[in-house]
Design a protein around this nucleic acid. Structure first.
Length: 296
DNA sequence: AATTCGCCCTGTCGGC
DNA sequence: TGCCGACAGGGCGAAT
């Protein structure tokens, strides 16, 4: 569920806290989250210093360096991943309350529980924690700061964040094939960062049915879609992400974008614009919600 | 070429 | 109250 706005929120929060920190040790508590690397490889990060935190699509790229070289720690949050910073002596919570309906207050730094799979201990006494109950998240490691060394990153299209509308529109048009609008938006090889929430929200905003064939849309409609994508992502970042269930920022606090969602998770409820019951169906193997009154 | 399916996972929730 | 099945879904690889 963490999509571009959520990952960007984590990136910003981590960037403020972790840059300059020196790694003392790395503990991997559940190895199944590792891809193409071992616990020992991660242990080799000791002595490296965090230099910056980047993002590509839904991937976080933690750049580390040591006199002899550079390395990138890649984190994908999957569905329920949480990457948080816990400063030395910070008051922690032992509870990981789920946000289903109603709202949850910020809970602050995490404690280490059975779902905490990685602990990076730093010289300041602070710790970087990766927690992921469903374990769809992934941690990768590669030499250098270039993305060419990582097959997953090589597959990604350009990042959707603040992309020029004209550029985004032409990319969508070029890569449309005979696929549904929603399918194209979710294809990380076309444009990276959009997931189920923001795809549905963008389609609603652009008044386009997500199941329509993208190539059948006029240039103007595709331009609407590109603008809508930009707007929903921008708002998502401004709201520090959507905390529908598990998402928290790097400081353990919730975002507020769930309060602004128009269609996601609202199937069967009345459309906030026209009052018609929102429709729900599976498109591209994802639950998709739209308004048959507002979207054509 | 595009689509579908199965897989990985566990917490939550509706139904009985 | 308790048990059970359905569901949530990002990304990948295999099958269709």
């Amino acid at each position: 569920m963490p999509e571009l706005p959520e990952v960007e929120t984590v990136r910003r929060g981590l960037s403020e806290r972790i840059v300059g920190e020196l790694v003392v040790s790395v503990e991997i508590r559940h190895g199944s989250i590792l891809e193409d690397c071992t616990s020992d490889d991660l242990g080799g990060l000791a002595g490296f210093r965090f230099a910056s935190v980047d993002r590509r699509g839904k991937y976080l790229l933690l750049r580390l360096e040591l006199a002899k070289g550079k390395i990138t720690l890649v984190v994908h949050l999957g569905m329920t991943g949480q990457l948080t910073w816990r400063a030395k002596g910070a008051t922690v919570t032992d509870r990981f309350r789920k946000l289903v309906s109603g709202y949850r207050k910020s809970e602050g730094p995490h404690s280490i529980d059975a779902h905490t799979h990685m602990v990076v201990v730093c010289a300041s006494g602070g710790e970087l924690l990766f927690r992921d109950p469903r374990r769809f998240g992934r941690i990768l490691l590669f030499e250098g700061w270039g993305d060419g060394n990582c097959r997953r990153l090589e597959r990604l299209g350009p990042d959707a964040w603040r992309m020029d509308h004209g550029t985004l529109a032409s990319i969508l048009k070029e890569r449309a094939g005979r696929r549904a609008v929603k399918t194209v938006l979710l294809d990380q090889g076309v444009v990276a960062g959009i997931g189920n929430i923001y795809a549905d929200e963008a389609c609603f905003q652009a008044r386009i049915r997500p199941g329509r064939t993208l190539s059948g849309l006029s240039g103007l409609r595709i331009a609407d879609l590109a603008r809508a994508v930009d707007e929903v992502l921008e708002k998502g970042v401004r709201n520090a992400g959507t905390s529908f269930r598990d998402f928290v920022g790097a400081d353990g606090s919730d975002g507020s974008n769930q309060e602004d969602l128009k269609v996601y998770g609202r199937g069967g409820s009345p459309c906030l614009v026209c009052g018609k019951s929102l429709r729900s169906a599976s498109i591209a193997q994802r639950t998709t919600v739209w308004c048959s009154g507002c979207q054509t």
